[in-house]
Amino acid sequence: MQVLSLSTDSHYSHKVWHDEELSKMVDGGIPWPMLSDAGGRIGAIYGVYDEEAGVDIRGRFLIDPDGVIQAMEVLTPPVGRNVHELIRQIKAFQHVRATGGKEVTPAGWQPGDPILKIRPSLVGNVWKEWKPKK
C-alpha cells in the first residue's frame, strides 16, 4: 500500500511541518511522500477543492493495482477521519480482489467475520450465513 498525502501547502511548508512537528509525533517521521497541490488543481479533478477557502477538504481515495478508484470518502473540515473504517475497507477490497470478485463482504463486515461466496443458492439465504451481532 502506497500512501500519498496532499494539501495546497507548498512542499517547503510540508518540510517544516514534518520536521518541526510530525516527526515528534510519529516515530521515524512520516514514511510517505507529502505532496503539494498548489492551486488546488489536483483537488479540483478529485472533487475536493474548495474554491472559496482555497484549500482541499478532507478526502481520501483508495486505488487498486489497476489504477481504478475502489472507494472514496469526503468530509467537511471540522470532523476528522476514522482510520479503523479505512483499514476495514482496505482489507475488504483486498480480499474481494484476491478471490477475483467471487467472495464479497456484507454490510458491517469486519476482518475475521464470515465472507459470502457468490452462488445462485445464496439468493434469499444470506440470513443463514450472515448474522450481524452489532
Binding site: Q2, L6, D37, Y46, D56, G59, F61, L86
Partner: peptide, 24 residues
C-alpha cells in the same frame, strides 16, 4: 516530483487535507 502512476501495480491511498499545522 511524484506521480500517482509512479506506483502502478500497487494499492494506493491518496489523502487530501485542508492544511499543514491544523488540528484535526
Amino acid at each position: 516530483k511524484v506521480k500517482l502512476s509512479d506506483y502502478e501495480g500497487k494499492w494506493r491511498l491518496i489523502c487530501f487535507y485542508p492544511g499543514d499545522f491544523t488540528f484535526v
